[in-house]
Design a protein around this nucleic acid. Structure first.
Lengths: 303, 303
DNA sequence: CCTATCTATGAATGTGGTTCATGGCCCTCG
DNA sequence: CGAGGGCCATGAACCACATTCATAGATAGG
């Protein structure tokens, strides 16, 4: 019956092996020998009593047990960082440390810069690291769940559930707007331009109440591209207001009437990261930046 | 600028020092020398660049920074345990590992035993550890927040907020009942017996709608004592139904009319512990045990 | 069949945590 | 007031464990 827990260097090593895909590559990245990596992995496996990687000609791939361990490893290392930052913060009165943020493109462009600027101005010790993640599949929240980010900014259905095991809190509820080339008489003849991240379920209910449908639908990379294509007269689009923060010349945006479709932008954290001073300060700044942009947020439970 | 993270043995050592109150006592408990503890603590402080304990004649007391570190330490060690349990579970198909549960007295007596019995029957590898914590101050949820428990069972106001940074989910909503000595003609002349854990705000609103008040109030240790005092004819009481699971002879319980006061029993976890298989299984069993006892729980978000 | 690219293993090595022994400090009790 | 007994800090010797270096085994492709 083996016992003893994995040390932080071991956790980092396991993550490196997973990312590198082979022991030798991981060794290079870590500045170690292939031998050391091999030894360390087997040590971890003996400590846990479980095989973590399938070794083969092509390198090392995690077993199911290995995948679970890798998720935990990310969280644990992240929390060690926050422990350090918290300790130093409590002693010096300032907030510091790394801060990994997962965001999707449009929010990274239109919401984050202002918040980060204010945040780092007040806390020079902070080093934020923004990861742009497409809001598809597990999306940005997945980055938090997998231990790769401290905080994610995600979109959520108007009253959808938070992702299991994570904390979500509303930052902003923003309406979708109809956008069409300026001066165009009737947008109804233009094709609809859409992008894959746009969870069309948000707008589907609205479409079902309309008495017309666009003649065609074009798929393009992201909402920024959608906007510039509209500006060039190639079609019309239904875009969230955040995307229209600094619209190019030549587009007109109009509200979608009485009950416009909306999307909810939330921040997602784990309970552990939520404790961290850095994350709390970031959330505060995000709120300040988001407040004038959207429907006033509901009363916050977590302050 | 120091760097390197604290190892699990170091984290355990810091917790031991905090609990023991002195380096020497912690050393005894850990089977180490006082010298080793002293050296280890200073090493931790050098690694973090922060003083963690105030040393003095009377031993060692954590600084504010030290307190933050201790909280993180508890969580990290807990998560290491879950990593091990998860890994072994993923490999062997069973669930195991330690499982620290914080509960207040009455629920520990009336709800937990059945759930734990079913749980350990299915997963012999599990070793649950139940801590009885008075539901005062931070209460049972505080144990989870401070990293001392994986899961807490707490009471919450009917629509109160979950504790900040923690996940709460309703297990049971149960009414309060009026309890008085059997055969007593009118309970209105008897004194009210109350206990400190009883958050009287739950029943206050109900009292305000009544046209009478008890002649006096007796405070006793806990709801079990309340019940046996009622059985002995010393007074009447307003008790949650769970306390009346196996009432002694000589008491009569009657509902409190149309809109009786209720209390909500929830389980509280961190996002991280919520991932663990053991915690998930425990929650499932708790639900099964609680279901027939109270108002059907609202749809669960986290399954 | 030989080569390239993986991982596994064995022996030598150095860093770091541990013990042991000792010293300094401060409160308390005779 | 001085001795004693808690407490923590420090220095030297010791021991264990991770790392390196060197080498062997396995497996696919030319």
């Amino acid at each position: 019956m083996p016992s003893a827990d994995l040390t932080p260097p071991e956790l980092r090593l396991l993550l490196a092996v997973d990312q590198a895909g082979t022991f030798t590559a991981a060794a290079r990245r870590l500045g170690l020998t292939q031998s050391a990596v091999s030894y360390a992995v087997t040590t971890c496996e003996r400590k846990l009593g479980v095989v973590l990687f399938e070794r083969g000609r092509a390198g090392a791939r995690p077993t199911p047990a290995g995948r679970r361990v890798l998720v935990h490893a990310g969280h644990i290392l992240r929390q060690l960082e926050q422990m350090r930052a918290d300790a130093q913060g409590a002693a010096t009165g300032t907030t510091g440390g790394p801060l990994a943020i997962a965001a999707f493109r449009s929010v990274a462009l239109h919401l984050l810069p202002a918040a980060l600027e204010r945040l780092t101005a007040r806390h020079p010790g902070l080093s934020p690291h923004v990861m742009i993640v497409p809001e598809l599949g597990a999306g940005t929240a997945g980055e938090v769940a997998e231990g790769r980010a401290d905080l994610a900014i995600a979109t959520l259905g108007d009253d959808a559930d938070p992702p299991p095991g994570l904390l979500a809190d509303t930052l902003l509820i923003e309406p979708y707007l109809l956008v069409y080339p300026a001066g165009h008489p009737s947008s109804r003849n233009l094709p609809l331009i859409d992008w894959p991240e746009n969870c069309s379920s948000y707008t589907r209910e609205w479409w079902s109440r309309q008495d017309w449908l666009p003649p065609a639908t074009l798929q393009v990379a992201d909402d920024g591209v959608v906007l510039s294509m509209v500006a060039q007269g190639l079609g019309m689009a239904i875009l969230p207001r955040l995307t229209l923060t600094a619209p190019p010349a030549g587009v007109t945006a109009v509200p979608l009437g009485e009950r416009p479709p909306t999307r909810r932008i939330v921040h997602v954290t784990t309970a552990a990261t939520r404790q961290s001073l850095a994350v709390r300060d970031l959330v505060r700044e995000l709120r300040k930046v988001a407040a004038p942009l959207g429907v006033p947020r509901p009363v916050s439970l977590t302050e």
